[in-house]
Simulated scan of single mutants.
Amino acid sequence: MSQPAEQGSFPIQTSSQRTPAALNLASYLYQNPILKQRTGLINNERDLDFFRYKRLVRALLSDDYKNKQKNPKNGLVPINNESDAQRVLVLLIQNQLILPVQKLHYAEIKAVRGWTPNKTKPTLKRIEKAHVDPDAYFGWLYSKPNPFILLYSILAIAGVFTVILFPLWPAFMKRGVWYLSMAALGFLGLFFLIAIIRLIIYLISLVALPKPFWLFPNLFEDCGVLESFQPLYGWEEPKKPKKGKKSTKTAEVKADAVGSNGTTSSGAKASEGTTQRRKVTLEEVDE
């Protein structure tokens, strides 16, 4: 593992080759309840789980970690003090398992063109300096492997061989497959028949009735199978026109783009919107 950071800062070289020690530490820390990790939006685009540095130290110095570390099968390195926890931070950054991030405030999000504050998730931005500060934020690049991936692979292979060996199936199995396929085709045909009938009834109601009438109004909605056929019928309500929203939104965009001196802001730099390999610098902050 790397040496702990001294006062000041130094660059951390990252590598795409992840060591077993780093993976074991990430497997223990990821979704650890002590971290109290949350989900934010990195660059206001995709979800990213993040946590505070002080929570990382607390998890590594916990009794639970000491008990897990005593078992050689877990492959966890001993952690005795905060300096050892800082070495773990450096190791995780080197193996590209975490990255330093900054949580933006409302005004900082609005200052970036095209970004909109999210009411449910904080907006994060990647930074090049990893501060050794209790309230510094770090985001996860690690995700635990799916424990059922082996089972899914075996089932897929078994399904392929089952189809290939169809000529060797006994007669009763072939008949069962034929009945099932006919039943599936029957249900599919019935579905298309209902869709055509409801469309004809809707077109007639446009002329003959004051309001358009729908048979199975939720048939093509994004819901469950049973909910698609509930209720049996419904009336289509006229859509209310939206007033003033478009003009107000346009005025807000222009107000953000034009500064107080009459010049147009350039927005975020192009390098902030692109993903590239960077050197992370570790800085120690005095409390």
Score class of each variant (00 low, 15 high):
L180H: 07
T120E: 12
E227K: 04
P212A: 15
Y30S: 03
T123H: 03
P241M: 12
F220N: 14
E237V: 05
Q37C: 04
L48Y: 01
G176S: 08
Q69P: 04
A268C: 11
E82F: 06
D286R: 02
G244S: 07
G259C: 10
I194K: 01
V160F: 04
E221R: 08
K144Y: 06
Y65R: 03
K66H: 11
C223A: 11
P167R: 15
L193I: 09
L23R: 04
T39C: 13
T116M: 14
T120V: 09
N74W: 01
L188Q: 08
R126I: 03
P100L: 07
D256M: 15
D84P: 02
V90Y: 02
I93E: 00
K129S: 08
K121S: 13
S260W: 02
G267Y: 02
V88T: 03
P231C: 05
S265I: 06
F50Y: 13
V77Y: 05
K245D: 07
S27N: 10
A111T: 05
Q96Y: 12
R46S: 08
A270L: 13
I98A: 00
V160A: 09
T14D: 04
W214A: 10
I98W: 00
L141N: 04
R18S: 02
Q96L: 15
D84H: 09
V253W: 15
Q96C: 12
Y233M: 09
A107M: 09
P145F: 14
F148R: 09
Q94T: 06
L60P: 00
G262L: 10
V112Q: 01
V225W: 07
Q96S: 06
A255M: 14
E82L: 10
D135S: 10
Y65Q: 03
D286Y: 04
Q86Y: 09
I127V: 11
I42S: 13
G75S: 12
L89V: 07
